[in-house]
Amino acid sequence: MTVRWQNIGGKLPRLPRWWTPAHTAAAVALLVVALGILPVLKMSLVVNGVFLGGIIALGAIGLSLVFGILNFANVAHGDYMITGAYVAFFFIDSFLPLLGIEGQGLGPFTFGYPLLIALPFGALAGAVAAIALDSLIYRRLRLRGANAAVLAMTSLGLAIAIRGLAQIIWGTQVLSYPRESRQVFHLPLDVRIPPDSLFIAVVAIILVVSVYLLLTRTRMGKAMRATADNPDLALVTGINTQRVIWATWAIGGGLAAIAGVLLAVSQAQLLPIMGWKFLIPLFAAVVLGGIGNPYGALVGAFIIGVTMEVSTQWINPSYKPAVAFAIMIVMLLARPRGLFGGSGPG
């Protein structure tokens, strides 16, 4: 599988090679249609979709990085998300109160400041779990020369085991972080934004920018891109590929865990099955952006998020995952290599 990272660290996004005037015409037509739809759309849904897209993006970027460097579809990614969410729950619900740290209603948010303390610990748990599982399991399979299908299969086993473990510890009932109901912000165009969404957006933006800086400015980030590009050359160049793999898991697991916490905040609930369910929008975003291309995944995430939310204007909201799935199928028919794939180097 070719990995397409050439968009990373590029100067300016240029039109891809396959772009023809017909594409321009189609884009303009699409824009006109979009402008036509716009007045009908509930802007509120669009805005919610952007926030949902932010959460999807955090998961999808990590998933795409893992895909690019380890070359397999990690179906346990959603369960790395709930790992973070439940560890954060443990901190907020049990551990922090034990230390006398309790607090409700931080500013306009539904949650208190304990969540801000719990969030990094959730991320840490996700990263550590991902690294530990790599060292204990995936690394041994790699050394044995296992192929990508075996690694994906193993990730399915891990997905089940992680969820089972979460159910043993926290049960299968619906949990939630402590909440205080809050006023929503009213914006023009009948847009209502729950303050929590702004928090989610800020966290997502900070993390996405950090990942970008990491990949383009740091030695380890560049080594990650080099390894994804050409694993054999990375080895003979002296890049410590095992460390690159651990860094990838740390970022992927950490981002997933934070996405899990944010998902639990935005849905006001926490359930073990949430992670597995979230795989569909995650993978849809990754496919949309081109497998292995983290920037594509970012764009894909927002497209998926907005479409999922906007679709609820016409169809039953519980079909949202099916909508993500449908977009993915249409995408596979129209541009199988993803929005940005296809012209990558050898």
Binding site: R140, L141, G157, I160, A161, G164, Q167
Partner: peptide
């Protein structure tokens, strides 16, 4: 829930 966990562990164990 333990049995749930066990199914996953079984798959991972077999692969390993």
């Amino acid at each position: 829930n333990f049995r749930f966990f066990m199914i996953g562990a079984l798959i991972v164990g077999v692969m390993l």
